[in-house]
Amino acid sequence: MIDILYCLWLRQIRSFLRARGRVVSALAQPFLFLIALGLGFAPIFRKAGEGNYFVFLAPGVIGAGILFNAVYSGSDLLWDRQFGFIKETLVAPVSRVWILLGRALGVASVALIQAVLVGLLCLAAGRVLPDAGQIGLALLFALLIALIFAFFGSILGSVMSDAQSFSQIVSFIVTPLFYLSGAVFPLEGQTTLVRVLAFCNPLTYGIDGMRGALSGRFVVAPSLSLLVLAVSAILSAGFAQLAFSRIRP
């Protein structure tokens, strides 16, 4: 079974690396966020006594990259459903659980590779050198959000039927997830409504975890964040499996 997982995982990696435009946009998008938001909000942030906005924003942008990359990969599944490859996997003597898992691991890995590359460039630009423990903890948070949103993308790719409206509908879902995650602004001092919405969003725990791992300042205790993310990953995997098992090509 490991071999099947490996082949499906490798397919996602190859597919990503061979689509040069996708590689470039996946790496460029976080920097556009960083530059556009960073230049706009940095002076306000500094005046408010919150310190360097770029340092604050970098984990948020990395988290956003993972979110967008993983969720939009659901369109690959929709594409496979519409243009055939899914049938090749569904008539093979393999449980759909493994097919979904192999695909999700591939998607999560692609998102993680992108996150690592963006993270390295941010660290180099900020001349920050975290220790191995900090990097390991940040990667663990990144991996968990990559898995959650890879499964979430699989749900969308399984239940939606119109490839053309996929990106519009996904934008409608993903944009609030991004803005209500503490990626762009600190959650301290926000209204109760914003805080409640943010703490219902698993991305919040992932971004706070990555930020805390690198800076030492956590809003939520890291153990609690890891627990929330682990439970979210299990739930999203369960719902993804349910949706995937109902695909009728």
Binding site: I4, R11, R14, S15, E88, T89, A92, P93, V94
Partner: peptide, 16 residues
């Protein structure tokens, strides 16, 4: 997005 060989290899894996 894959070569002929990669497609065939994938089938071999799926059929164990």
């Amino acid at each position: 997005t894959m070569t002929v060989h990669e497609n065939l290899w994938m089938h071999c894996a799926l059929h164990r």
